[in-house]
Amino acid sequence: MKLSELHFYEYTPTFKHKIQTPKITMNVRKTLFIGLIDESGTEWFGECNAFETDWYHYETIETVKRTLESWFKCVEGHEIHDFSEAQRMADKLNDTPAARATVMMALYQMFHDLPSFEVPMTVTVNGDMQKRFLRIDHAERIKIKWNCDIVEQVKLLTAMYPDIPITTDANQTLSDRDIPLLNQLANYNLAYIEEPFPELLKEKELGNMPPIAIDEHATDEQAIVQAVQCNHVRVIVIKPFRVGGIDRALSLIDTLHNQGITVVIGGMYECGLSRYFTALASRYGDYAGDVTPCGYYFTDDIVEQSGQIIKGRLRFKPPVIDMSKLQRYL
């Protein structure tokens, strides 16, 4: 198999409810897609999880596009005999994991038959709890974005849903002043809190806080091992785009499970193609991953019915891109 062309596309769905995080408010999700075309004319798609700005990660839509333009000039027309060779080709992008993950999403489909499957559901609450209550009943994990009412929300949800694990994500925005608040949260059996501080704390500094999970710090196997050994982190949130793609994520899950580390698969306000791959990896996590049902964030999506709710679980089929919704990105 040879790669003959690389196309870039844009798709910008509108959020049903604006997304509010400690760092940004978003009304739309501008998304970059790529199409790798082989010598037979088949186009294989990848979805980029980077944002327009670097609020979450140093790679942005524009930097990924420029990186992949340069990468394709080096690999165009080269013969790819198997998936291992495709991985080595993608390894040229090791310094830009979001770009590698975008390419790997397309390359993975070239050499694997994608399955249909079901996964448990996570509900993410972004300060819009009243609007989400009706969707929580079937969840196997509830994730609350950090906000000023976090203690009251966790207290209420643990009372209403005592058997559903509840987690929160602070995106590294907390400081020493918030430690008393974290100690309060420990009273409500919070399963874990993702990345409360910009720096990881030593075990003696953790006190009575809920278990701490790393997300932003989980950039590769070396960083994860260091966090486990030096900071006694026992929960790792793996985002495929952060570690370089679906292949790297699956490999890391095996490695961490062999060390007795709890693994959760994270998502990134994804469209249907990327959400399929997040769900694919989340089948091997210890908690329900950051996988939402179709129509949860967007009215329209690039893949129809990707993650339908069937008896409280999410059903995924091999994704088919609706080309009519893509615009060429020049």
Rank of each mutant, 00 (worst) to 15 (best):
E62Q: 09
L6T: 05
F72D: 03
K23D: 03
H232V: 05
F197V: 06
V75D: 07
K155I: 01
I224R: 02
A139I: 12
P13Y: 07
L182H: 06
L114K: 02
N147K: 10
T60K: 00
C271Q: 10
Y188A: 07
E221F: 04
C148S: 11
N258M: 14
H57F: 11
A99D: 11
V123P: 13
L36A: 05
D149I: 08
K317S: 15
N189Y: 01
H138D: 14
G295I: 05
K204I: 03
K202M: 10
N189H: 12
L181Y: 06
K311F: 02
D322Q: 13
Q20G: 03
T219G: 09
Y9W: 08
K65D: 07
M129P: 00
V151S: 05
M268C: 08
Q229G: 03
I150S: 00
T53S: 15
V303Y: 11
I150W: 06
A159Y: 00
G127P: 00
V320I: 14
D54H: 08
P318V: 12
P165M: 00
I142A: 04
K317H: 14
K143S: 13
Q327Y: 08
D178R: 01
L330W: 09
S116C: 11
R315V: 04
M105T: 13
G260S: 10
L201G: 04
T96C: 13
V75C: 04
L134S: 15
S306C: 13
F15M: 01
T173I: 02
T96N: 13
D322G: 05
T25C: 06
C294G: 12
N187D: 14
E140F: 11
R29S: 13
F117W: 13
R328G: 00
V291K: 02
E216Q: 11
T158P: 00
R328Q: 11
R328D: 10
A191G: 01
M121A: 14
Q172G: 08
N183L: 03
E152P: 00
T102P: 03
D91S: 06
V320W: 07
M105H: 01
A106C: 11
I193S: 03
K2P: 10
M129A: 08
I302Y: 02
K2T: 11
I61H: 04
L93M: 12
L273F: 05
V303R: 06
D91N: 15
T12G: 09
I24T: 12
I37N: 08
G266I: 09
H81K: 12
H112Y: 04
I166C: 07
Y56M: 09
Y11A: 14
A227R: 02
K325G: 11
Q87S: 05
K239M: 07
V264F: 00
P162A: 12
D38I: 07
R313G: 06
I309C: 01
N187G: 10
C271P: 10
F51T: 11
Q229Y: 06
E52Y: 14
L314M: 09
P211H: 07
D113S: 07
K317Q: 15
L326F: 12
F277K: 06
T292A: 15
M268L: 12
